[in-house]
Design a protein around this nucleic acid. Sequence first.
RNA 1: GGAGGGAUACCCAAGCGGCCAAAGGGGGCAGACUGUAAAUCUGUUGGCGACGCCUUCGAAGGUUCGAAUCCUUCUCCCUCCA
Length: 374
Amino acid sequence: MFVFEVEGKDVNSFARCGKIVTGHGVIQTPVFMPVGTQATVKALTPDDLYELNINVILANTYHLYLRPGADLISKARGLHSFMNWNKSLLTDSGGFQVFSLSRLRQITDEGVYFRSHIDGSRHFLTPEMVMNVQQQLGADIIMCFDECCAYDCSYEEAHNAVTRTTKWAERCLSAHEPEGQALFGIVQGGMFEELRSKSMDQLIPLDFPGYAIGGLSVGESKDDMYRVLSFTAPKLPDDKPRYLMGVGSPEDLLQGVKNGIDMFDCVLPTRLARHGSAFTSKGRITVRNFTFAEDFSPLDDECDCYVCKNYSRAYIRHLIKAGELLVHRLLSIHNLYFLENLMKNIRNSIKIQKFNEFHHDFLVKYNSSSNARN
RNA sequence: GGAGGGAUACCCAAGCGGCCAAAGGGGGCAGACUGUAAAUCUGUUGGCGACGCCUUCGAAGGUUCGAAUCCUUCUCCCUCCA
C-alpha cells in the first residue's frame, strides 16, 4: 500500500504539506526521516523513536546485504520484524555507498564491482540484485540503484551518470515486484541544470510513485545546492512525493520545503549527537566545549524534549568528556526531537499560509547567537 | 650500612654529544561532520613584540665550539643484599 496526498499548498512558495500512507502507517509531510543504516538508529530504540513521533526511518541495502545478509533478514520475516520497528521503513539502494566507498569499486553499465569495506570480499551489484535484496528486506519504500557523482565532476561524468541511472532505473522497474513496496526513482545530473532536466525527462515517464533528488549535499556549497534544488524540485511531478536525499541541517530543510520537497533523510542529527553537538533554536552548539562546563541550563531553553526537561549542558558535557555512552542517547533524542519539531512547525505554517514568515523568523533566531554557528 | 636502577613538558613515556622546544600515547583546547567504513576525523598543546628570540629535560657545579644526553656532588624514588 502506498498513497500520497497533498493537503495544503503555500501560495508564496512551492512548499506543500500532505501525507503518505504505507502498510505501516501514516506519515505527515514534509517529513524528516532519521537514518538507521545498519537496521538501528544508532543509540536509540524503536520506542525512543515512537516517543519522538517518528513514523519513518531509513535502512541501507548495501550494508545489510553485506551484514547480516538479506537471506538472514528474510528468515527473520523481514526488516520490520528483525529490528522490531513497526512503522514505515525506507531502504536506500546502496547507490550512495558506491559513491562514498568509491575507492573499492568499479562501475560498468551492467553493474558495480565492489570490494566489501568489512572484509575485502568481492561483490557484483546489479540493479536486479539490489531490487531482489530490497524485496527480501521488505521496506515500505525502496530506492532505485543509481549512480551518484561528486559535486565537482565534469559535465561528461555527470552525463554518463544520468544515462546509467536511467538505464538502471528501467531495469529496477522491470525487476520490481510491486506488491507492497513503492519504488522511487532518483534524479541525478550533478550541478548542471541541463542534466538535471534530462534526468527528469527520462525518469518521469517511467511513472515512479515518488522521486528523489540524489547527488546533493555531497560537498558542494550551499549556493550550488540551493541552485540545483531550485531548478529541479519544482519540476518533479506535483502529485508524487519528492525526496531530497541526504539533507538534514535546519536551514537546508527549510530551503528544501520551500522548493517543494516532501521528504528528507540525513545522518546529521544523530552523527552530531555522537560527536558532541546539539541543535538549538539559536543555532548549533558544541556542547563539548569548555564554555559549557558550568552551564546548568538546558541544551535549548525553548525545547520541550525529555533531555531539555531533565539535564543540563554541564552534565551533558561531563558525559562527553567522560566518554559515557548515555550522551549518545541523550543528544540523539534531543537532535531528532529538534528536527521533528521543526518539521511539525513547518507543516503547520504551510497549513495556515505562513511558511515564508516561519522560515524567516526561524533563521533570524537560529543565526542569532554568538556561541552558536551553523 | 652495601650494590644497582631511575628522575624528561599537564600525565605516561622515547631520546642518551649537534639534525631536540624535545618522538609516541593520554589528557586539555579548538575545528569538521548533510542517501553513516564515523562513540569518527583534523588541528593545536613552554613563553614571546613568533621564517627569529627567550626559558625548559630533579638541583647545583663542571667538561666541550656545542649537553636532556658525559663527569662531580646533592635531593628524592624503586629493587636487591645485610
